[in-house]
Simulated scan of single mutants.
Amino acid sequence: MGQFLLVCACGGVGAVARFVLNTSIQRSWRKLFPLSTFIINVLASLLAGVAAAAYTYQTVNYYTYLLFVTGFLGGFSTFSTAINEMVSLAKGKKFVMAAFYFVVTLVIPFSMVIVGWWVGSMGR
Rank of each mutant, 00 (worst) to 15 (best):
F95W: 07
R18D: 02
T81N: 15
Y57L: 01
Y57H: 11
T81H: 14
A44G: 06
A44N: 04
G12R: 04
F33I: 00
L47A: 12
A53C: 05
N22D: 07
F33M: 04
G92H: 12
V20I: 05
S36W: 00
L35D: 11
T59S: 12
T81S: 13
L43E: 04
L46P: 02
M97R: 10
T78Q: 13
C10L: 13
L66D: 13
V103H: 11
V20P: 00
V87N: 15
L21V: 02
L35R: 03
G75A: 05
T78W: 11
I40V: 06
K91E: 12
L67D: 11
V104Y: 01
L67M: 13
A51P: 00
Q26F: 08
Y65A: 08
Y101I: 14
K93D: 04
K93W: 02
V87D: 14
L32A: 05
L43M: 03
N61H: 08
Y63S: 12
G92N: 05
L32Q: 08
T64Q: 05
K31R: 03
L21R: 03
V69T: 13
G71P: 08
T59A: 09
W29F: 01
K31Q: 00
S36R: 02
L73H: 01
S28N: 04
A52M: 15
G75Q: 03
I83T: 10
A44Q: 06
Q26T: 08
A98H: 10
F76Q: 04
Y55F: 14
V69A: 01
L73F: 12
T59Q: 15
F76E: 06
Q26P: 04
